[in-house]
Computed example of a mutant assay.
Amino acid sequence: MELMNPQAEITNALLDVLPRLNIDTYFYLPQEEVNYPFVVVGEQTVNGMNTKERPIVTVQQVIHLWALAEDLETVQSKTKLIEATIHNLQQTENFKWQNHLVDSVLLMDDTTKDQLWHQVLTFTCQSN
């Protein structure tokens, strides 16, 4: 019997669907020069249990979006696309998902030579 990993499945699904929004997507914060805007599939917290048939988990998934300060409209439109895309991600290979936006925070980031918007989206992804 193959071991099913819901955390890996939801991560891989996000890394597959988010680039389809015409935005560069990373699993890490890039250290090299990149084009803005871009997304990072960030931190995860996983809680769950194993049943006789399958693991059932809740993944707290953080998605980061960075864009140049003059691109607030882009941040807003990409944020809505990300929210809808994750909400509609209801099936991976072995799991069905219920995904809900928990928190959305927009920050000004001046830690680089460019002034940036940093959108932080937190989702709860519940497998069943």
Rank of each mutant, 00 (worst) to 15 (best):
L3M: 12
V62R: 05
K52L: 09
L3N: 09
M49F: 02
Q90D: 12
L18Q: 04
T122F: 01
E33W: 02
Q31R: 13
K113D: 15
D109N: 09
N88I: 00
M4V: 11
L116T: 07
V105F: 03
V102M: 13
P19T: 06
I63M: 07
D109L: 04
I82T: 14
Q7D: 01
M1D: 10
L14P: 07
F123R: 00
I82F: 04
Q98I: 05
K80M: 08
D103Y: 06
L15A: 12
A8K: 01
Q61A: 02
D16C: 07
Y36V: 07
L18M: 03
T112E: 10
E9G: 03
S127C: 13
E32K: 13
D103W: 03
L106V: 11
E73A: 04
N5H: 10
L101Q: 14
E33R: 07
K96H: 08
T112D: 09
M49H: 01
D110R: 00
A67E: 06
V40L: 14
M49P: 00
V59W: 01
Q60M: 08
T51R: 06
L81P: 00
V41A: 08
V40S: 15
S127F: 08
T45D: 15
M108K: 07
C125E: 12
E2D: 13
T45F: 10
I10N: 04
V120P: 02
L107D: 15
W97I: 00
L72P: 05
N22D: 15
M108W: 00
N35D: 15
N99P: 11
V59N: 06
N12V: 02
P30L: 08
K113R: 11
L89K: 06
M108G: 01
R54V: 12
E32H: 12
N22T: 09
W66Y: 08
Q60D: 14
L106I: 13
L29E: 14
N94S: 14
Q126S: 12
P6F: 04
P19R: 03
T45P: 04
Y36E: 09
E32W: 04
T92R: 11
H87V: 05
I23H: 04
N94Q: 10
T11D: 14
T11F: 13
V17L: 11
E53W: 07
E2R: 12
A84P: 09
L107V: 12
V34S: 10
V17P: 09
H118K: 03
R20H: 02
A84M: 15
F27C: 06
T111A: 12
T79D: 04
M49R: 04
L3F: 09
Y36W: 05
A8W: 00
G48D: 07
L29I: 13
I82A: 03
N22C: 08
P30W: 06
F38G: 02
F38I: 03
V17F: 08
T111D: 14
V17S: 07
S77E: 15
I10E: 09
H100R: 03
V39S: 07
V17E: 14
